[in-house]
Design a protein around this nucleic acid. Structure first.
Lengths: 338, 338
DNA sequence: TTGAAAGCGCTAACAT
DNA sequence: ATGTTAGCGCTTTCAA
């Protein structure tokens, strides 16, 4: 079933069918009704490829997700898909590993699928303008921004929480609760990604409290996998380093860390307090429930889409939106007497 | 940049460029090298819409995921995406809620995107042939099959674990460990979905052990959300029903149940043993680690793709593959003396 | 309000 | 081995 057959069936021309299907005003009510009904009866759905080919560019935006298996992202992706459809756009999802280059992937995707814009969900924070010059469509960085790069502010959009600040808040919360030996578990201290920002926030908090940062209390897992985080946390304990609190750069890492501490005979929060950032839903149901700074996943996704769509429609220019995270008190932090 | 411009740039015709780009043999090495290099230099990526339009049908398959936020599915989706690309196909993802109809969504997706096949990730088990008749492309049911419907075996493909049998195994494992008052937590006892099969397995296990099934020990959460499962489990405890073990129809539900039990002052496994089905990775890192029957997520995804691709290529017909789940002993089941 | 026809970028005959 | 060309299904001028 294609537009030609349907036109014949309705006794009108293909252009009339096209107009009717697309809600153009210059079609008589009678004809429109007939076309729509016949289309429904025959399960006619316009061929997207043909549409995309002629409507240049198409109405699709691409989502490049870096770091598959990041549970936090699933909620954001869901929000993005819904928001995309609400805006009358379609979307294409592409997942890449942490060692792949999102800009390259995005560029290829945009060209091959004729996209109007891109949303990067997770990525490096150190782009140069030469690197992003490849991108021929507007893009929004979701959950990160170009903190370490040389990109002009008006060359891209972003929607994030203030990672450095929120990390500082998290660590300060530990310090307020009497902790001075605070360890950190992150992917990598210097990979030009969000982890590095959170590391900076960690150091800020220590500095403000007049606590010298102890390099022995930094554990790097090299990724966001549960397994890697478990090993890094276990290694930290095995190293003999002394700490009463741990800041994990992601909920998933915190969960694995809690387990590693448990396996080492340390209780959370009795022996070690743990706080993290993300607020995935499962972390409220674990024992102990995680104390974490909840990122507004739904809002991050919806905002990314609405910003991108506004740019595509020419109604807005590149902006940088910062959303607030919210402290969700669980059971993983205990007050100690200094 | 399109094929025409590139052809001009290389001083050859568009068909030669097309052949070179698609790896056809009838192109001289010299020309092929030149085309490929020029394409790379100019970041030329063939327009997918134009390709899809002319290569009828396209090389894309669709994945319809029912039950967004199901953590177990994310691993399967990842495997499906990788396998799809390995087979030289592209894929389109569409997520729907549990109250939406996957067949309708699949049909629309297939028609609009000109798909060659569909993979349904999660869905009802009670299709009629009239319902699936809408689908004009082959489809594979992944993680479920048409156990309660009237579909002919050769009308569709499926790849699953034997849900009824694995559920029976899980519950029998509890019984072997001395439990006789075994409760069950599932989405819905009669919704024509996988939950119903697992419920049947639960009853089988009880029957084989000569234990009468107690309706008061069935808790329905009405979905797979953590929140719903928590409430259902909490309700079960509050009802005053006596049980020493609980079988949850999904890992996520089990995690929420463990929390609900904990909040009610019951320890797992000291007071209540818990077992489930799925084997999501986070459930090994919780305290207690879940004892669960691990579904082979990666293999489920890869198998679904290879079955579908084989059918599309005309190399195979509809089949039904059953994969085995594996018991992963955690810490949530305790032996009791009968 | 409708129809005829051009053309989007590409692939695959068919011709050379 | 390479070029020429029809046509995929659709939207959109342009004409009527």
């Amino acid at each position: 079933m294609n537009i030609k057959t349907l036109a014949k069936l309705c006794g009108v021309s293909v252009s009339t069918v096209s107009r009717a299907m697309n809600g153009h005003p210059d079609v008589s009510d009678e004809v429109r009704r007939k076309v729509l009904q016949t289309a429904q009866e025959h399960h006619y759905v316009p061929n997207g490829a043909a549409r995309d080919l002629v409507r240049r560019p198409s109405d699709a935006i691409g989502i490049v997700v870096k770091g598959v298996g990041n549970i936090f992202f699933t909620a954001v992706i869901r929000a993005i898909e819904n928001a995309t459809e609400d805006e009358g756009f379609t979307f294409v999802l592409h997942q890449i590993n942490t060692d792949e280059d999102e800009l390259l992937a995005g560029e290829t995707l945009a060209r091959s699928k004729n996209l109007r814009g891109l949303i990067f969900l997770g990525g490096r924070c150190d782009y140069t303008s030469a690197q992003t010059a490849l991108l021929t469509v507007p893009f929004v960085c979701c959950t990160y921004r170009n903190s370490f790069g040389t990109l002009a502010e008006d060359a891209y959009s972003s929607v994030t929480v203030d990672d450095e600040r929120e990390a500082e808040t998290a660590v300060s919360y530990l310090i307020e609760n009497g902790h001075r030996d605070v360890a950190i578990l992150l992917s990598c201290a210097k990979d030009g990604s969000v982890g590095e920002l959170r590391y900076a926030g960690y150091k800020n908090a220590l500095a403000k409290a007049g606590i010298p940062a102890d390099p022995a209390l930094t554990a790097e897992s090299g990724g966001y996998s549960l397994h890697g985080a478990y090993r890094a946390a276990a290694g930290l304990v095995a190293s003999g380093a002394r700490f009463t609190a741990l800041f994990a750069a992601a909920d998933t890492m915190a969960l694995a860390a809690v387990r590693a501490l448990f396996d080492a005979g340390l209780r959370v929060p009795e022996d070690v307090s743990v706080i993290s950032i993300d607020g995935i839903s499962v972390s409220q149901y674990t024992v102990p429930a995680l104390t974490t700074l909840v990122q507004p996943a739904e809002e991050l996704g919806r905002t990314a889409v609405s910003m991108l769509v506004a740019i595509i429609r020419g109604e807005a220019i590149n902006r940088h939106v910062t959303l607030a995270a919210a402290l969700r008190k669980g059971e993983s932090v205990k007050k100690v007497s200094g």
